[in-house]
Amino acid sequence: MSKEKLVEIRNLKQHFKTGRHSVVKAVDGLNFDIYKGETFGLVGESGCGKSTTGRTIIRLYDATDGEVLFNGENVHGKKDREQLKKFNREMQMIFQDPYASLNPRMKVEDIIAEGMDIHGLAKDEKERKAKVQELLETVGLNKEHANRYPHEFSGGQRQRIGIARALAVDPSFIIADEPISALDVSIQAQVVNLLKKLQEENQLTYLFIAHDLSMVKYISDRIGVMYFGKMVELADADDLYKHPIHPYTQSLLSSIPLPDPDYERSRERFTYDPSNHDTSEEPEFREVRPGHWVLCTTKEFEHYKKEHGAVTTS
């Protein structure tokens, strides 16, 4: 995989005003890069700001501060229509709820082709139809489905329509916000396999947001763990699961129930207590091991380095 940066997120902040004097800092100073062709997983508890991050990156929200660079250009800031269109074509989103994210009054064909119409990607009616049918087949639906309405489909099929819509404009970067949470276990595997297949075929880059840690681990190359609007740990998927460093990540990992009774019987859960942190200074994001970043203070950094820095990646 090339190490070319596709998306760079610099000090991204998203604050929401909830009253005259109260501000919710949903995302508070995020820094990370997403490389071309990789899947970047973002995990954390509900309310930690992972969905807000995804929505801010694609400019569904205007960032309070910081910038998002896509291929070196800032996504936010003043843009005219043409510039905006260019970004919208490159970046697409798959939403969590396949029941709410498709317009119930539009035919599947029009849902999928809406983006193509806006960007003028189909020359005439015939080409439009052909492209829609091709997309439907790519995501594992029949071309006869083009003339139906969303309510005629099951949850898994609807999510496939959502994926086809995202693919219609030939994007290079797709943000998937909990794309499988609303689906049944057996259907989840189908959709994840599809996402992986599409990534290989079209050289897509994914930002995969989810709280199902075992699925994130399966699909992601690198994973960022968020806690209260901040990223506390970032590492290669394997490394993160084998050698979690930040206590919050450790507690998160120790809470995942695994489908293995023997393991479950002997499991010991680790509880995270934020007050155990060293509070002598503001924690910073530091690289404890190559490619493995942790939010910590100088003192903690020394400690982590001693404890985890030497461990070889196995």
Partner: peptide, 12 residues
């Protein structure tokens, strides 16, 4: 259909 935590990149 459930991925396990020790990674194998085989298809689900």
């Amino acid at each position: 259909s459930m991925p396990s935590l020790d990674s194998q990149d085989a298809e689900l």
